[in-house]
């Protein structure tokens, strides 16, 4: 049986992990490769790096991170952040990424998603959608709009329809972040996640708001997500991947068994 996935996500800036990862037993908690290795050992199902490097010139540092990660970690790796051209995608895939996540560039140029899927295959094209509760957009139907630039810029696009459109353009997966819930640790936006999961036939990754293991459960059970993305609850070792998986399996969510943490200090 296909299992639901747990995907830890690291924010990476200039090649270093930001948004405090506090692994006490880690040689260098700022090195994404070391953090990736820990998650690998704990049995994470995939990894996600989000490049928040401000300047385009610095982006080669991310390629180096991807190269070094792919040498050490043999699990699927998605890289997002600032991807604008087919050449950006080619270089990341060549470095060892398995999927790329496209956000702003998709909103600015939906045809870019189509071109990327045609060139590299839908399996490696993830479209990231930042959605926020907001009524009254020009094609608002469901009550959530697509935002860009970390929730600052509205697009007027209905998030559910946008997800369907991206699927039609060849996206292989949707990474759905609730901008209302992101950072709150109050739980995922379940109605949003369910609305999009019901509207598309491609997998949906829920993101934004995880604070407890029960929140992960809700994202699968009520949000109908295929995968959950989480940062803080794993980075601060509130819970290990293994604990999350045991809990979810007990609740009846199909899970690939995790492993016990390599060391707990």
């Amino acid at each position: 049986m296909l299992t639901k996935r747990i995907i830890p996500c690291l924010d990476v800036k200039d090649g270093r992990v930001v948004k405090g990862v506090s692994f006490v037993d880690l040689r260098d908690a700022g090195d994404p490769v070391h953090v990736a290795q820990i998650y690998d050992r704990e049995g994470a199902d995939e990894l996600c790096f989000l490049d928040i490097t401000a300047s385009h010139e610095q982006r080669d540092t991310m390629l180096d991170v991807v190269v070094r990660t792919a040498e050490q970690v043999f699990m699927p790796l998605t890289v997002g952040g600032g991807i604008r051209t087919l050449e950006d995608i080619r270089r990341l895939l060549e470095a060892g990424a398995d999927k790329v996540s496209i956000n702003t560039a998709a909103v600015q140029e939906p045809e870019f998603v189509k071109a990327a899927a045609n060139r590299f295959g839908s399996q490696c094209i993830v479209v990231a959608i930042d959605a926020k509760r907001a009524a009254g957009g020009e094609d608002d139907v469901h009550g959530w709009q697509v935002f860009t630039h970390g929730g600052r810029n509205t697009t007027g696009l209905d998030a559910v329809r946008w997800a369907q459109r991206m699927m039609d353009c060849g996206a292989g997966e949707i990474l759905l972040t609730s901008m209302d819930q992101d950072g709150t640790q109050d739980g995922y936006d379940l109605p949003l996640t369910a609305a999009i999961s019901d509207a598309v036939t491609i997998p949906v990754i829920a993101s934004g708001g995880a604070g407890t293991l029960h929140h992960l459960y809700e994202a699968f059970a009520q949000g109908k997500a295929d995968a959950v993305l989480a940062a803080s609850i794993f980075h601060f070792q509130t819970y290990s991947i293994g604990q999350a998986k045991s809990f979810l399996a007990e609740q009846g969510i199909p899970m690939r068994p995790g492993t016990v943490p390599v060391s707990t200090a």
């Binding site: 296909l2 299992t3 639901k4 996935r5 399996q123 036939t201 491609i202 295929d226 995968a227």
Partner: peptide
């Protein structure tokens, strides 16, 4: 969902 994506 299609693609069949993940651990089986």
């Amino acid at each position: 969902k299609i693609p069949h994506m993940g651990w089986n």
